[in-house]
Write a protein that binds this DNA or RNA. Structure first.
Lengths: 130, 130
DNA sequence: CAGCATCCTTATCGATACTG
DNA sequence: CAGTATCGATAAGGATGCTG
């Protein structure tokens, strides 16, 4: 896993990538359609969501169900393997949220130890053009 | 967590980022020095490792211990919060590795459903210039 | 609604040189 | 050894227009 040549590295990158983890987490409670997913995973663009879903489908974490009505409908759901991964991701999310007070406190203490200019921290999450 | 404006998103990105997760996982068993870490997290450059460690230190997941000998020595270790996060990450890693046969199988089946050209899959992990 | 193709901007990353 | 600073290549990501 720590080796670059290990095939699990690419799967890990899909699962833990910026969007992969959020998509898997969003699908945890149940199936979602493309735009539902897009609203849930706030900030993701159509292109990136498509890419992410394809990578996750290729790895067998996500299943794509095409419903050929009009307008077109596509439902994404977790496979058993994907669900087991999502379960652990959601546990990580919850744990991380629970630790946020400690994290924010650590960030404040870190900012004081060295004189970082107030704008140099990475608080940026992109422009509001989502 | 799924909202872009939530401060936990940046922490999540550090924890689940390409290198953040591997660094936290590598520090799980015990403290490591900079270059030990660099060897363990195969493929990471000096610059990126520095960046990653600084982000993790800022969030309070990693502690940096400077030992002012000659040559200079720095030991990185997990904080209690970092350890709890790393614990869950390592569980995820192990689970992911256990699922790799299923993942590789899914990738093969996916490649057959649509005629992806054999070289278009993302197997790239960069050149061998480590 | 769901997704592809294209262009273009921006961030990521790696190689190099230098400090302590 | 550990880390900073800078530069150039590359890849990720966003905006737009088009298809079914």
């Amino acid at each position: 896993m720590f080796a670059r040549t290990c095939p699990s590295r690419s799967a890990l990158e899909h699962v833990t990538g910026r969007w992969g983890s959020l998509v898997l987490g969003a699908l945890g409670p149940g199936p979602l359609r493309f735009n539902e997913l897009r609203r849930r995973v706030d900030g993701v663009s159509q292109k990136i969501l498509t890419q992410t879903l394809q990578a996750l489908e290729r790895d067998g974490f996500v299943e794509r169900n095409l419903i050929s009505t009009f307008p077109l409908r596509v439902e994404y759901s977790l496979t058993p393997v994907g669900a087991s991964v999502a379960h652990r991701l959601l546990a990580l999310f919850a744990h991380l949220e629970a630790q946020m007070p400690a994290v924010l406190d650590a960030q404040r203490r870190y900012a004081q130890r060295a004189d970082r200019s107030p704008t140099s921290g990475d608080v940026s999450v992109g422009p509001s053009s989502g």
